[in-house]
Amino acid sequence: MVFRVSAFPYRWVVLALALVMFLATTACQAQTASGTPPAPARGAETTPTPVQMRVVTDFAGRQVAVPARIERVVTIGSLPVVNSFVFAMGHGNKIVSGLLPRFDSQRYKYHFVFGPRIAESPIMEGPDYTPNIEEILRADPDVILTMQQAVIQPLEERGLPVIFLAWREPEDIRRVIRLLGEVFGETERAEAYLAYFDEAVERVRQRVADLPPEERVRVLYIDPQTMANTHLITEWWIEAAGGVSVTKAIHVSESVSVTLEQVLAWDPDVIVVRTKEDAEVLRRER
């Protein structure tokens, strides 16, 4: 959600928001609700057959062996983001982990469309991303996808295949998509998605290429509840959309915290927040 701070021209704010929403949600557009048949039930075969495996390298440089045919996926961490990448591969119906209560809102309703098993699946982690080992073992996943590096060891110790994902720059997005293309045996689909991704980003780039510096909005992306920006990639979102991030000089690691005094000194033209509730917090503080 965009919160206007000044009377600065609004047209480029729309582009900034559009790109943020594009990165957060376009993965969902790559799959239709009925585009993938339901996953077969476990134990349907009476005669065991050798399981074909493939080995992939994750973002921690670890080689992980996963079945060539993935039927059950558990996601841990920033669930809406990780789930959306699975949706982009056309395998949302394989997700067997539920959303945390904080994600159970209208904003995330399409997760239950693209991932029809999510609504009835147990939650596999705590509010601090601590994995629920018992529930995960009960789910018997073929692969676990996570953005939380700390959960790898306890899951690996129990023989569970864990793939670590991370993204801070645009090229990381491409690596994630190609990695998941390998995991799900969807390399052609991955390349098609990346072609769409590049075309969308280029379309925005052309729209803002000739925008003079004095017309580029100065943008702050923040969680007003914590006064932090926990996503380094937002610096790219803002710049690619034709804006100027006021936190660029200090945002060198994944998370950066700011003070109210810094915000007042920056005097951004636009503040971008995630929810309507966050926007209400800012309005009350004006």
Rank of each mutant, 00 (worst) to 15 (best):
G77P: 03
V13R: 10
A24Y: 07
A60P: 05
A16I: 14
I70F: 11
G92Q: 14
T49H: 13
L100I: 02
P37R: 09
S97Y: 00
G126C: 06
V13D: 15
M124S: 06
V96C: 10
A16F: 07
T49C: 15
L79S: 13
Q106I: 07
A65D: 10
T49V: 15
G77W: 04
Q52D: 12
V20G: 08
K94T: 12
R102I: 01
P116V: 01
T46H: 03
F112K: 09
F103R: 11
L100H: 13
P131H: 00
I95Q: 09
T57W: 02
G61S: 01
F103P: 10
N93I: 04
G43Y: 12
G98A: 06
L99K: 13
V82H: 02
A44F: 09
T25E: 10
Q63R: 10
P40L: 07
R11L: 15
I118L: 11
F114H: 08
V20M: 13
G61A: 00
T57F: 00
T26P: 12
D58V: 02
T46V: 02
A119H: 14
L23I: 07
V55E: 04
L15A: 11
S121V: 02
A18K: 13
T57D: 00
I76S: 06
F114E: 08
D58P: 08
P50L: 06
P80F: 01
A39L: 09
A16G: 08
T25D: 09
F103H: 14
K109F: 08
W12V: 12
F87P: 12
V81Y: 03
V66M: 08
A27Q: 15
L15H: 12
K94G: 07
R72F: 12
V81T: 05
R72W: 11
T26Y: 15
P38G: 05
I70P: 13
F59L: 12
W12S: 08
I76K: 09
K109T: 04
T47V: 14
V64M: 14
F87W: 13
P38I: 02
Q29E: 02
A18G: 15
G98M: 09
P40A: 04
G77Q: 04
G43L: 07
P37N: 12
M124N: 03
S78E: 05
I118V: 15
I123Q: 12
V96G: 04
V55Y: 01
R117Y: 14
Y110E: 11
F103V: 01
S97E: 00
L19C: 00
P50T: 05
G115Y: 02
Q63S: 05
V56T: 08
S34I: 01
A119M: 13
D104V: 01
R11C: 15
Y108T: 02
